[in-house]
Design a protein around this nucleic acid. Structure first.
Lengths: 338, 338
DNA sequence: AGGAAAAATGTAATGGATTACATTTTGCGT
DNA sequence: ACGCAAAATGTAATCCATTACATTTTTCCT
């Protein structure tokens, strides 16, 4: 094992000088620094991070907790987090919580045991009081989702406005019977989308029939979306448009429609949310709301490190990034003869 | 900061005893252990991992390097890796190399600087000689892909056999004009699939026309797949089946066919590879080769830790897991009138 | 009860880098 | 050439858990 001591000997200086050189301290004479660097090179010295972390009381690691990462939505955010962390010389420990409480506990411990300096939470299932206590002690930021009134910075889009805009768009196309497939979870995004839908409908003077509002399961699974869509399409009168709170659910609605022999968008308009890659990998291309996933990931890192490096009080900063309505093929004017 | 010393004081023992208790040493009297645990509990003590890592010269972290993780194929493997690591109390540092050489360097450094104990490589672009040197010094295992003749364990499926089986299946359905969309990279899987296709064609006494073999770009992107498919479908005579080396490429072939007004599988059979989730999220459901991604991830971890814990010489163990031909809707007998 | 072996616990060195403080060297003005 | 401030470097304490080795306590046999 090559230690700093060996480097110091070889360069004919003390360990302090080596350390200072490696940390770019301006107090080292260029000529000395040069000699040190040569010694480092010659010996192939790589500093032991554990020792540094112990002394500095930091780890240069951040946690990213997601309920799963088979969902491309999370993958994209995680990619953004990874990119930005890379630039800032941080490493990302990606944790798949699966929504389990004991996973969450263990990840918290990683911060207390100094294995990680901070954490980014992507839609986790923490209960409020626990999260509140956690947020006080540790540096965390929430991404995509957030708990209102929690002293913890967050990055997301304005789900409420985006949904209203989408539902208003459907109305402009001429739709009156607009249904919704939501999800059975407590995420703020889910709630805001629901409220956006209801408010937009009311604003348009449109009726919201109870059997036009359906819930898929918490994870937006394709199968549960299909079941919800089948139920909706069996309703009488049948809706002419379905607003889905995720692209996967929209896909399942399209599949359900096709299985009933209904053409999309000819006989049924379907819209999604998120704008995942595969929305344009099949026909009809999906009309949806694009979220700047990558950028959300990046900004989460910045927000986290702001708090980490400034050692300020935890801020309550909430960042809302712009979304975009992607008008594509799956939404069209309703068939008025129907 | 609560240190082991404070715990020792409170429990009325020495730090050694506290340490032993926490590491489940059998040398501690149960009654003493109990007192120690109470003190730990009372003070909310969490051991400082940096200190432990420094002393033990390990990190309990493993690296997982992937060229990207927006591809669901990698996500699923990473999920398997994460699950197994979790069970074994290891953390996974997921690294998006983007195929950049400097990323790879930095990740290597993480092992040398004791931030990680080992690494799992998912189809990275390392050049052979560098990888060979790396494998000697560090614990690595390759997943999905592998460099032949490298003293480094690996986990994958038998890509050659799987491809031959698929192409033979297409022949059994009655196809004679079978095209292939490959990828422009050096992965062993890509090469084996190509060879499997060629050998299966020869075995069936079928001609392989040059314009029936096309390359998508290295990342199997949808757009490049579409271009390849369009070129194939413009060939005369037109192939009746296309074997694609990935599901994404198969999707792009289906999209290209639909844009030409060709029905799948009525007028064109298309098959994929990997069996990603969305193969059954649209119609026609894709006929493809299922890879046990999750299990591949899990076994990679086991293989890595075998090497890590036994401190044996790096083994050359190659594990091939079973694949499965998923017969679904996108492949059917060719239209004989065509 | 005596004493050796086994069990339990304690003491202190250790891992490797950082950094406060101490000391030496350099630069500069006169 | 002298002396002082500034620059450069060095010494040694520090971060905290682990563990080899030393010491004390317990067990159990005669």
């Amino acid at each position: 094992m090559v230690t700093i001591e060996r480097v110091a000997q070889r360069a004919g200086v003390s360990v302090a000088t080596v350390s200072r050189t490696l940390n770019n301290s301006p107090a080292v004479k260029p000529a000395t620094a040069q000699r040190v660097r040569q010694a480092v090179e010659a010996l192939g010295y790589v500093p032991n991070q554990s020792a540094r972390n112990l002394r500095r009381n930091e780890s240069q690691v951040i946690l990213a907790l997601a309920p799963n990462f088979s969902n491309p939505y999370y993958s994209r955010i995680l990619t953004g987090i990874g990119d930005r962390a890379w630039e800032l010389e941080y490493s990302v420990l990606v944790c798949n919580t699966l929504g389990h409480a004991n996973s969450e506990r263990r990840f918290l411990k990683m911060m207390e045991s100094h294995q990680a300096d901070g954490a980014i939470l992507l839609g986790c299932h923490w209960d409020y009081s626990w999260l509140a206590r956690f947020a006080q002690r540790s540096h965390i930021v929430q991404c995509c989702e957030y708990v209102p009134d929690l002293a913890c910075p967050s990055v997301s889009i304005d789900n409420y406005a985006a949904t209203r805009e989408m539902v208003a768009y459907l109305q402009r196309l001429g739709h009156r019977r607009i249904a919704m497939i939501g999800a059975d979870n407590q995420y703020i995004s889910t709630r805001l989308r629901r409220q956006g839908y209801l408010d937009a409908m009311e604003e348009g003077g449109l009726e919201v029939r109870e059997d036009w509002y359906r819930l898929a399961d918490a994870d937006y699974s394709f199968a549960s979306g299909q079941a919800a869509a089948q139920a909706l399409l069996a309703a009488a009168p049948r809706p002419t448009a379905i607003f889905c709170v995720s692209d996967i659910l929209a896909l399942s609605a399209i599949a359900a429609a096709q299985e009933l022999g209904l053409s999309v968008p000819g006989e049924l308009t379907v819209t999604g949310f998120d704008d995942l890659d595969y929305t344009t990998m099949m026909h009809p291309h999906l009309t949806t709301v694009a979220q700047p996933c990558h950028e959300m990931g990046r900004q989460s890192v910045d927000l986290l490190l702001d708090g980490l490096l400034d050692r300020e009080e935890p801020s309550e900063q909430q960042i809302f990034l712009p979304y975009r309505l992607m008008e594509r093929e799956s939404a069209a004017a309703p068939d008025i003869t129907a």
